[in-house]
Design a protein around this nucleic acid. Structure first.
Lengths: 204, 204, 204, 204
DNA sequence: CATGAATGAGTTTTCATTCAT
DNA sequence: TATGAATGAAAACTCATTCAT
């Protein structure tokens, strides 16, 4: 696998191998997001990474494993950003808004992530590993925002739905929007207003 | 094709064929939504419809055609419901809220539709027909809601993004939520509150 | 089948059916010669003949049967022309030349026949009926020309080879030539000279 | 591809692969000539070559490619033999006779070649590559024999037809003859006489 | 470890033929 | 008899995965 604890003391050989694995991830993410997970062959990825087809299987047990690994990586990344939001004390509303904004910005700046996760999600029904990753992520998010939600009158036992709403409204927007050429350049002030307009809020 | 024009006098043979075509659509929608468009073989669909494999190709030129046809049908259905919203005069905020609610309810009651459209979307980059259908739908929606949006300070030239937001936030929720067992039973009052909480609106 | 003995007293229904069968043969010959026997679907033929697909099988037991029938028809036609040559008394050389010329002209004027027979031949190994038709034709021809051949010193037990030579050198020329755009307009005097030049004859 | 350039240092792996490719060609030629190009499945070929079905497609992009490759190989072989005829100075008549004899002997000794080329030809209308190969071959041959033809009174602008005649009268004979069991054992002296008898030449 | 040739299961699609109407 | 919908066998081709070198 690729997640090696120690950051240091790698033999030059080990370093090269690690770099190869990272290239596999990078190129794999890009190609799968662009061409579609199914339409992207293992060989496309290894070719882009400058490796031979067979080498792929020394890094991952199979194509599905790469998909799951990338899912985990992206969700991990997101989780880290969400955690940082919690470091600064915020009132309930601001917390939710901040969490939402984290997701929005992440997908706006990583259209590949939106494209990839959107597709990967379609496999959740067939692939237990992916489903579990998403489940865990939404769970974690729900625990984080549950207090804020309850403070605003959102029932605690429905926190998962609130979390799902935060994720899906941002991921969905960019996933559906990218192929249409929409979303990439929405100016910040409009983003803030999005929910308000929708909700019939004051709009200022 | 499956155009459901006149319910008029069909020979018993014609009726049978039409029913077969509808069964193909129904079962196709269900199976593709559940197992994934790619994972669902043509034979799975015909078997479920009680037909032989080859019969599929007398109804549709290929698998892609069924996917596109179903996309068109679902978006058409949605468009019809949106149009009905316009019949009763509403202020800007209520209009947007109503349009959003139409989408939300549609996907809540048709989880298959969410599952299917979510996946079909992944093929928009590769399948021009599907992309065009989506493009047209978002376009139509944008024109419908542009005045209301402008009334609330949302720039008219960004109406497509607003439309996308309305669609994606509802489709995304149910698409991501269903495999997790979320979304199906969210009570109406929470749904109304969703956007408000998110947007930091009054929330009460 | 299509070969009905009685030329007359056909009910109007019978006449129509006979005409349909002839249309099937005509269009079938043309389409198969043009597109290739395998590439030409049964439906292509019935469509061109203004009939429904299923009707084909009330005229012929299968596609192969049409191919064989057309083979037989064409070879029959050829045989008839060859027989006419025998009616006028000719010396040995002139007889052979005349028989060859009959074939040559037939294929020059019926490029479809050359195209069709050429392909049909490829099926002789798999289709006993076609093989038998050819075998019979060559046999018949061999008996016709054997005396003339022997008169010129060609051993009688090799008459089949002589017959084959007469047929193949004309059929081959037009079959290979047509797709290249060659052969259709070779002027008569060159045709006469063909064999002489090749054989090193006087050439005048 | 199968370019047989240098017989030089090939890794044992490369040698094995090359041999596999050659086996594919050999068996493919034989099977297609015998059973018919269309009736011969890719798997028939690979099985005969001791390989798995999929391996075929690592050597050739598809079945058509093998057909075209074999066409090219056979015509190349023929071309080489024709070129050798030109090395020894001959008068016009002898040159034409020699060129014809080269074709005749080639097809007599390689009945598979006749069977295969005959069929491959039927695909010239559909397959541009094959058509081009034949076109080039006839063109080349025409240029070679044009002077000799003109010397004997055959118009230079009709040299292609003369070339076609030389090829088709030999290829046609063996192609049509083999399934009938004719042609394989025609003694040399009869071969020489063939054209003379046909042409009404001296016949002795 | 890296390589890339070999594998073969799996999928779409075609089309001759059957048969109920 | 004519029709055309249904059938299902067959074939080409793809590609994840294995494994000898």
């Amino acid at each position: 696998m690729l997640t090696s604890g120690q950051p240091a003391n790698l033999s030059p050989r080990g370093r090269k191998r690690k770099e190869a694995g990272q290239r596999l991830c990078q190129k794999g993410l890009r190609l799968m997001a662009e061409k579609g997970i199914d339409a992207c062959r293992v060989e496309d990825i290894t070719l882009a990474a400058g490796l031979a087809k067979g080498t792929f299987f020394t890094h991952f047990p199979g194509k599905d494993a790469l998909v799951a690994f990338l899912c985990g990586q992206l969700l991990n990344d997101l989780a880290g950003r969400v955690r940082q939001v919690g470091l600064s004390p915020l009132d309930a509303r601001s917390l939710l808004a901040a969490v939402w904004a984290v997701h929005w910005r992440f997908f706006q700046l990583n259209p590949q992530a939106a494209g990839f996760l959107g597709q990967a999600w379609a496999r959740a029904s067939a692939n237990q590993e992916i489903k579990a990753l998403w489940d865990d992520y939404v769970d974690m998010l729900a625990q984080w925002i549950a207090p804020a939600g309850e403070h605003l009158g959102w029932p605690g036992e429905r926190a998962k739905e609130l979390a799902l709403w935060l994720v899906s409204s941002s991921l969905g927007f960019f996933w559906l929007g990218r192929p249409l050429g929409l979303g990439g350049d929405v100016p910040p002030e409009l983003i803030e207003r999005l929910g308000r307009v929708l909700a019939g809020g004051p709009g200022k």
